[in-house]
């Protein structure tokens, strides 16, 4: 119940404001805060409102020169067409979920190893290697994708889940390794020493002591990798050439913006269906993310 409850993890927030200061607040200050926060809410929600209502309008209403603020003729036809015969929307969804999730799990595991090595290792060139790893993220995908296509072709990775997952993982590793390094840096070495005294081996220390302590960090890194993969347009666009294997971003792009017209209603319906589960998942783990960010990636530097 509380685990799913969408809230940011600030359990001490209400206590930290003594009653005296609350009373001291002037009404105009409260009003200013209220106005700005309301504006912030409008800013965040208005586009989402527009996305949802557009998905419920028919094609004619969607392209009206004077747009209607809410659907005058409510219709579910945009949603119906998503699951009709014409569009493999459910396979887009499946491909996106599978590849992004697997990439997130693999990338988190590999990043955690790399982060541990970068954080605790004593080898030479450690700092340099870390910087090189980070630098690989700087080169634009657009430049990389041509040669990458060639490698994937030679290794038969084109048009496969493996290829996409490898692409996503590699794209996420530079930041992932650095984030995990930050999280592991934040784990006091004394704890490891204590564990050693208790008879744990290195593996035991890593898996039983260090990684459990960085659990929020693992979640945070995982969420970042997942979002990166989920939003990636260029890799699937280039490395996948069958519609059945395609993921959501290029699937949406090719299906709704064709040579004939742009189907706003259909695209927004697809957008709603892809956004909602993501929001739910996102809210479920955001407590970990806040804790993770606080503990390691940001504060630990």
């Amino acid at each position: 119940m509380t685990a799913v409850a969408p809230r940011l993890d600030t359990p001490d927030a209400p206590v930290s404001v003594p009653i005296s200061t609350r009373l001291r607040r002037k009404p105009w200050k409260v009003a200013v805060v209220a106005v700005i926060v309301t504006a912030g809410l409008f800013w965040s929600l208005a586009p989402i409102y527009w996305m949802v209502t557009t998905s419920l309008k028919n094609p004619l209403e969607v392209t009206r020169l004077n747009p209607t603020l809410y659907p005058h003729a409510l219709t579910g036809q945009n949603y119906g067409e998503l699951f009709g015969q014409t569009l493999p929307f459910s396979s887009f969804l499946e491909n996106s979920v599978v590849t992004s999730l697997v990439a997130a799990v693999i990338a988190v595991a590999i990043s955690a190893f790399a982060g541990y090595s970068l954080s605790r290792g004593q080898w030479r060139l450690r700092g340099f290697t870390g910087q090189i790893i980070l630098a690989t993220r700087i080169l634009p995908l657009v430049v990389l994708v041509g040669p990458l296509y060639l490698i994937f072709l030679k290794t038969h990775l084109l048009n496969t889940y493996y290829g996409l997952i490898l692409g996503y993982t590699s794209f996420a590793l530079p930041f992932g390794a650095w984030m995990m390094k930050g999280f592991i840096d934040a784990v006091p070495r004394e704890i490891e020493e204590a564990a050693r005294v208790d008879g744990y081996g290195r593996i035991g220390i890593l898996f039983r002591v260090v990684l459990p302590l960085t659990l929020p960090g693992l979640f945070t890194t995982g969420a970042f990798v997942f979002m990166d993969a989920w939003n990636n347009l260029l890799y699937p666009l280039t490395l996948i050439d069958s519609l059945k294997m395609q993921t959501l971003p290029p699937g949406l792009l090719t299906s709704f913006t064709g040579q004939f017209k742009t189907d706003w209603g259909g695209m927004m319906a697809a957008a709603c269906l892809t956004t909602i589960p993501l929001m739910a998942a996102f809210f479920a783990i955001q407590r970990y993310m806040v804790r993770g960010l606080t503990a390691g990636a940001l504060a630990g530097q």
Partner: peptide, 11 residues
């Protein structure tokens, strides 16, 4: 991954 292409691969 290199050796075998995905069973879902159509091309």
């Amino acid at each position: 991954a290199c050796g075998s292409s995905s069973p879902k691969s159509s091309n």
